[in-house]
């Protein structure tokens, strides 16, 4: 029994030393110009979804989707989000595709998150993805406005679309 414990301890120490060596010798790839590995694509989204679901408050959007509120959200989306997440009618963002992992393209595939979860993500950001915590730059009202727009990005009323397109 003692030999087994000793063997496991030695193996753990060796594994730890190899791990530290790999990090310290600069062997971990950090370039972002390759597609994420299958492991990252498969498992990291699970952790992100679970964490967002755990932290976000499940609540409906308090902003009624009037033209006025959607125009306000459209302006925020166009100025702060569209560069990475795509402009309606223009296809995926090349800049967004250059992130690691690539930024979700909401004009191509609408988000599967609930509005409460989207609010949390916009406000708090997602680590190591390039998604900033907008809570420091936007009020809760601004964020709810943009969440309302995200839900309707490809079917915005013409008044909202006209106002938004003038910003380009």
């Amino acid at each position: 029994m003692k030999k087994l414990v000793l063997a496991i301890t030695v193996l753990l120490v060796i594994a730890l030393m190899i791990g530290v060596g790999v990090f310290k010798l600069g062997l971990v790839p950090v370039n972002a110009d390759v597609p994420p590995s299958g492991l990252e694509t498969r498992f990291i989204p699970i952790a992100v979804h679970a964490s967002v679901a755990n932290h976000a408050e499940e609540q409906p959007n308090p902003m009624v989707p009037t033209d006025e509120n959607l125009i306000a959200g459209g302006e925020v989306y166009t100025v702060m989000c569209a560069r990475c997440h795509g402009v309606p009618g223009r296809g995926p963002s090349v800049l967004g595709a250059s992130f690691y992992p690539p930024a979700p393209q909401f004009t191509v595939q609408p988000s599967g998150y609930s509005e409460g979860e989207l609010f949390w993500i916009v406000k708090h950001g997602i680590r190591n993805t390039g998604m900033p915590a907008w809570g420091r730059l936007l009020s809760d009202q601004d964020i709810w406005h943009v969440v309302a727009v995200l839900r309707r990005l490809n079917s915005l009323p013409s008044a909202v679309e006209n106002s938004r397109s003038k910003l380009h």
């Binding site: 420091r136 601004d142 910003l167």
Partner: peptide
């Protein structure tokens, strides 16, 4: 310190 109510292109 910063502005946290969206005020247009340049707000950030």
């Amino acid at each position: 310190f910063s502005c946290n109510i969206f005020c247009g292109s340049g707000h950030e």
